[in-house]
Nucleic acid binder design. Structure first.
Lengths: 364, 364
DNA sequence: AGTTGCTCAGAGAGCGCTCTCATCAGGGCG
DNA sequence: CGCCCTGATGAGAGCGCTCTCTGAGCAACT
């Protein structure tokens, strides 16, 4: 399709030996062809404000004919803007692979960024050394901002980002002491606590009285917040009804077995993730408990590839993961656009909490 | 940690107003501090070959003291190398989200690229318009090469990559007519056909005689190849034993139901993916067939989050997905490094087929 | 002693772009 | 009729880097 318009460029070029990459047209060549100065050509390429319509057309034509595409490196060199944002994912292999969570999150981010003509750079942190590598990369000035994911306690990335002077937005409430009050610290999280309340409330409305919970790893705020929601409704609950998992099916199964051993009379379980719920379902089945007749189960996340495919399909708390990604990107873009926020103390960058709601299927 | 060495830079700088980003040190300033020319400083920064050890040390010291990091835009502008590779993923939402396949693939790629100090740029294609956007991006010269994923029939990306003159490597055997013979067309695929043979062979060795198969979408070469493998061992097989799925659990379930209706006497199923196998297991369970007693099931992929967690755990054909990603990256990097391959007809870029093998669990 | 060859350092020319600033044309005003 | 203001255009100075080319210095050869 573009072939047609691009052809004249080739014929206009001095004949190049076949197979050799022909030199990319520059602004200079566009300007020459349009009979204007480089400055004017640049103006047109960048929106065309303040250029007579007639000239504007001439330049546009030249651009089309030559198939001109601006050289980003040159542009970045002078504007000091890359049009790129880094997404730093520091997550152990196990979860990154098993959880569609990240894919959805990334998609939301990618959508929002590309809508604003920004590129997404994915930086994976696998081991300790990678912190250095990524740190160096960020310091290299390849990106205008950073999106950070699921930080663990005392994660060095926010400090790194701050040191190299890059604006950043965090996914998930950061858990280190004082984080909440830090100016400049913007995060996006879902209403974990409220979601947990919904789950427990639903189980209670079903008449369940011995409601257990399987938490995620308790060094993550999402786990803690969900547990807090559970406790909100069961302030005097039996501590034996609480078991810690690790967000995997495996861990969920182990926690379920533990709970069954401690409290054989339990009649409901709220699992802190769909993955853990699926493990719990398996253990319950093996223990001869019927779901939901004997034990009602509610999950968290509403990850499609899990929740809808368990046996029985999982009632769960839905969080709009993609929307969270989109929000993170939007927040960061806003900070990038507003020069005042890049200075130290100005402006109020506000964190955002997205709502959660209950999706009722067969398991509860 | 870097704080300590970076400090002198700040104090050496003219006092900047607090909050304002201090200007990044340039090669020029490094050279000045080390008492050498910019050229020599550049040599040291880029390896230090051909520089006297004494000067080399001086420059290194200056770099450390100033916290110098090369400006990539400037470097790219002159070298015409970005140190970045685009990964273009054109996959419908459903599969991208549900399949850990991609995460693993990406991880392999990321590992290999970062080992060679290359950046990975993820470009997601969601709808038709994105082809343009990505095409423009690639034409923009942000990257040195492209990694293409799971192309569908007549996918325009390879042509786009070729038009903008970017070397590329494809994941999965391309399916369009004549693709095989195209020079410059390098791909990485697993031994789908051989893997399928392994699966069927195993089922036969178990004494199964009515072996059905659920294929993936037949416009993808991986599906076709697996079907071919199945047929290799069952050349005179009953065509009623073949049903088409879509790589999702749902589609696998539907296909299974179909098969049961057509051939109630089937005693084994080879599913073209673990996801489809999980759907099939569910349908079999609902139909009252015991697995593996009544019907043996073998999957494909060995995706951990599925295969090990089905009930019963899935016997499946394993392909080393991460290794495939790594291979793709390695192949591309080799093309980038070797200037001869960038010219048209030279060199023999070889595609790679990775082996598959059987992982035996409980379902067969 | 003259020549050649070699290693190492510096000078300087760009890479392609943006952006400031000077210039110039034209219109409204005193 | 001259002045200033506005708006459109072009000239040119870099952005920070790499890389070629020149030349200095020195050892080894004729």
């Amino acid at each position: 399709m573009a072939d047609h318009t691009a052809r004249p460029a080739h014929t206009a070029q001095p004949a190049a030996e076949p197979g050799a990459a022909l030199p990319r047209p520059t602004l200079e060549s566009v300007a020459e062809r349009a009979g204007v100065s480089r400055a004017t050509a640049s103006r047109v390429v960048n929106g065309g404000a303040g250029v007579r319509a007639e000239l504007r057309e001439k330049v546009r034509l030249a651009v089309d004919e030559l198939g001109y595409v601006p050289n980003l490196a040159a542009r970045t060199l002078v504007t000091r803007r890359n049009g790129a944002v880094a997404v730093v994912v520091a997550e152990p292999e196990s979860r990154l692979f098993s959880d569609p969570f990240f894919a959805q999150h990334l998609r939301g981010i990618s959508r929002e960024l590309s809508a604003a003509d920004n590129q997404m750079l994915l930086l994976l942190i696998e081991d300790q050394r990678d912190y250095d590598r990524v740190g160096r990369y960020l310091a290299g000035g390849h990106v205008d901002g950073v999106l950070l994911f699921s930080l663990h306690h005392a994660d060095p990335m926010p400090e790194t980002a701050r040191r190299v002077g890059l604006p950043f937005v965090v996914g998930g409430r950061p858990g280190w002491p004082g984080a909440e009050s830090e100016r400049d610290l913007v995060y996006v999280d879902s209403d974990n606590r409220g979601g947990a309340r919904l789950a427990v409330q639903h189980l209670r409305s079903l008449g369940r009285r011995r409601i257990a919970t399987i938490t995620g790893p308790l060094d993550q705020t999402s786990s803690l917040d969900r547990l807090d929601g559970y406790r909100d409704l069961l302030p005097d609950g039996d501590p034996d009804l609480i078991a810690e998992g690790d967000f995997t099916p495996d861990g969920g199964g182990r926690a379920m077995a533990e709970l069954l051993a401690r409290c054989p009379d339990l009649d409901a379980v709220f699992a802190g993730s769909d993955a853990m719920a699926s493990g719990a379902l398996k253990v319950l089945r093996e223990a001869g408990r019927r779901v939901p007749e004997d034990v009602a189960v509610v999950g968290f996340d509403d990850v499609e590839s899990i929740a809808a495919w368990t046996d029985p399909p999982l009632t769960t708390v839905r969080q709009d993961i993609e929307e969270m990604g989109r929000l993170m990107a939007r927040l960061l873009l806003r900070r990038l656009a507003d020069p005042t926020t890049s200075a130290t103390r100005v402006a109020a960058p506000t964190s955002v909490i997205t709502p959660t709601h209950l999706v009722i299927r067969a398991s509860a």
